[in-house]
Structure formats: C-alpha cells, structure tokens
C-alpha cells in the first residue's frame, strides 16, 4: 500500500528563491487499482511520480510503500529499491537506440549481480508476450513495438509498482488502446499498483481513480 504524508518538494528558481512544487497532506492507494494522474503543465505530476518512486528526494514528509519509508533510505538504497520494485514507462519510451530490444529489456538487470541465463530467458519471454522481435534493430521497430519494449523493460523484475508518464501520448488510438488495456490488466489481473500520468480521455475513462494535481496539491476528481 502507498501512503504519502505531508509531502513537500520545492525547487530553486533562477533568482535562487525557492518555490513549492508539491504540497500533499495525504494520499493513499492500494495495489490492484488503476490510477490516472491529471493536471496542467507544471502542476507537479512528474515530480510526484519521481517522489513516489524515490527518484526525487522530498524536502519534508514521508512516502511509505508498505513498511518501507523511502524518506528514510539513502539514495543508493532508494535506487536499489526502485530497481526491484518499480517499473517505469515513459512518454517517449526512453529506449537506448544502440541496443537491441532484448538488451533494452535487460538494462535494469545490468545494474546488479548479473545472472545471465535466467534473466535473458525472462526478457525473451516478455518480448515474446508483447510481440516484439528480440534481436531486431530498434530503428526498425514501429512506435507501438517500441512502447511495448518499454513495457517489457518495466516488467523485467516483475515489479509491484508500475508508473507510466503519458504512455499513450505519442501513440495512435489503436496502439494507445492496447497500452490502456495492458495497464488495466496489470492492475486488475496481476494486482499491481498502477499509476499513469495522462491527459488521454480514453485512459481517464478506463481509470479506477483519477486524481488531479493543481499547483502541487492533490484533489480526487472521480472514483470509479
């Protein structure tokens, strides 16, 4: 279960004065729900996603995942926790062009002790499941195949938490629908915690919960 308490994140502007980006009194969510996060540009959506996966250190407050308080972990410990527990999907896929789809999926595996055989088998199985050729050049893949490769990478360590930043923004409607189905399935069928930042009406319509960020503050817009 995710519990965010009194979370505050501020940045420094060019004039070296600080301004608040996030100011969230309380937010809680259970695995198995598909949550969509909306908000205008600059409202703090990406910062919230980064804070709840431990990438962004908070100025104050706590982010608890079960018994783990991310605010208490060192940066290295947060990195390792994120590798093992979080799958990130980006709007522009963020794949490494020089690597094959298989190697892209294997990237998080290289951060730790590498167990080649079993991890390669897992990565290959994921790509097969997503219908992406493992050894083709990345430049030869369609946008849909690239997004599915990014999904496979996110699921490499079978994470409990899936965070997706505008995952359908650069896809056509058909490919977007596949992604939405996949995210819903990960939440409902696999019992993962799934949160996606999106302005896509189709995704908002498919969400179990829609939370809105406005100048760093959360409001629940709709609940399924």
């Amino acid at each position: 279960m995710l519990t965010v308490t009194d979370l505050g994140v501020s940045f420094q502007d060019a004039a070296r004065s600080r301004f608040d980006v996030l100011d969230i009194a309380h937010f809680a969510a259970e695995p198995g729900a598909f949550i969509v996060l909306t908000g205008s540009s600059g409202s703090g959506k990406t910062t919230l996603m980064q804070a709840i996966c431990g990438l962004q250190a908070a100025d104050r407050g706590h982010v608890h995942w079960g018994d783990t308080d991310l605010s208490e972990l060192s940066e290295t410990a947060r990195d390792r926790w994120r590798r093992d527990h979080v799958g990130l999907v980006f709007q522009d896929f963020q794949l490494i062009e020089e690597l094959s789809p298989l190697d892209n999926v294997l990237v998080p595996a290289w951060f730790g002790r590498f167990r080649a055989g079993s991890l390669i088998d897992r990565a290959t199985a994921l790509l097969r499941e997503f219908g992406v050729p493992a050894r083709r050049r990345l430049s030869d893949l369609s946008r849909g195949e690239r997004q599915r490769t990014a999904f496979a990478r996110a699921l490499m360590f079978d994470p409990l938490i899936i965070l997706a930043d505008e995952p359908t923004a650069s896809l056509d409607a058909a490919s977007g629908a596949v992604v939405i189905d996949r995210l819903r399935s990960l939440a409902h069928d696999a019992g993962r915690f799934v949160m996606a930042v999106s302005h896509d009406p189709a995704m908002i319509a498919a969400a179990d919960r829609v939370v809105h960020l406005d100048r760093g503050q959360l409001t629940e817009k709709a609940t399924r």
């Binding site: 990438l55 940066e75 290295t76 990195d79 390792r80 994120r82 590798r83 093992d84 979080v86 990130l88 963020q94 490494i96 990237v107 998080p108 290289w110 951060f111 990478r153």
Partner: peptide, 14 residues
Amino acid sequence: RLALLRALGATRGY
C-alpha cells in the same frame, strides 16, 4: 541518457 539509467534503478556507482 545516463539519468534514465538512474531512473531505471542504477546506482550512482553504476
């Protein structure tokens, strides 16, 4: 690109 590695769970050491 290197920040992406951090986002995916790479430590500073990596």
